[in-house]
Design a protein around this nucleic acid. Structure first.
Lengths: 148, 148
DNA sequence: CTACGAATTCAAGTCGACTTGAGGTCAAGC
DNA sequence: GCTTGACCTCAAGTCGACTTGAATTCGTAG
């Protein structure tokens, strides 16, 4: 039970086998050993995949995630950089909250043009006053699961 | 002063001119008119760019952003979808907070392996218990500014 | 022993979001 | 009138993160 092959990891984590192979290739995860050709993973890979998923959700590239959580297990990057990252996340959370509020407002406000709605403008001002955390290009693609 | 050409928009927003052209091409922003060949933008494009930047930071694709904020100005997508999006953002914020805490912990904890640190495991459990918001691939590339 | 299904490799393809480069236009200043 | 600089177009290139497909290799069940 402690050893999983790729299909099980895929099923439990929602990460496609091809992606798992890719992650192993770039050193983001590793298998314990092979049985024949087949990779055998330890259960801790699931934890690591959660970490990776969170990192991705937070806008880090795979390379950065590898740096933060270490290919080996411990961070490659200096502690104060980690703290800086944490502070960036903090700011990003605030931005997310603003966007959440804007979305809710847009969903509810009956004004024909939001540019004329004072509530909207107020929300936007909060956003435009501070400098943006500008992280391009997040693709949305939902959790993949192995076909049943 | 109400009319900006592309260089000014780029400078004020931190978005490269080539990107602005691209955004116009896909209908995400629009210029008021041309003077000769040159695009002339209204100041409200800056607000729109903030919105776009926030959307990107939150993990939306450009297409989704276009849907949310409307090519014309008003959302293309139904109100309840907007609310759903807002709720997703809410969950994403929680994930971000967890990751922030993990980062801070990793920065400060002297344990040789975090997998053995109880604080770390506790943080991770919070993360792995709920199903992930899995949004692949955010590139980080910082705010570009025109060279001085 | 053989057939099956789940895994493997490797090269190539895809997708979104831009960027780059070559060659062209235009208004303003000397 | 010519140069300069800021803009333009259009096609092609790039980058990260995967996915796909064809051909192959196992291990188990019958």
């Amino acid at each position: 039970m402690a050893v999983l092959d790729i299909g099980e990891v895929a099923e439990r984590s929602g990460v496609a086998p091809s992606t798992l192979r890719y992650y192993e290739e770039i050193g983001l995860i590793s298998s314990l050993w092979r049985r024949g050709l087949r990779r055998q993973f330890g259960a801790d890979v699931l934890l690591r995949l959660s970490l990776i998923a969170m990192g991705k959700a937070a806008g880090f590239s795979l390379e950065e995630i590898a740096g933060i959580f270490g290919r080996d297990g411990r961070p490659d990057i200096p502690r104060d950089q980690l703290r800086t990252r944490a502070d960036e996340l903090q700011r990003q959370m605030i931005e997310l909250r603003t966007l959440r509020d804007i979305l809710r407002h847009v969903a509810d406000c009956p004004a024909p043009s939001h540019l004329e709605c004072p509530t909207f403008r107020k929300l936007m001002q909060a956003a435009s006053r501070r400098k943006l955390v500008y992280r391009p290009s997040v693709r949305r693609s939902g959790v993949r699961r192995a076909a049943p």
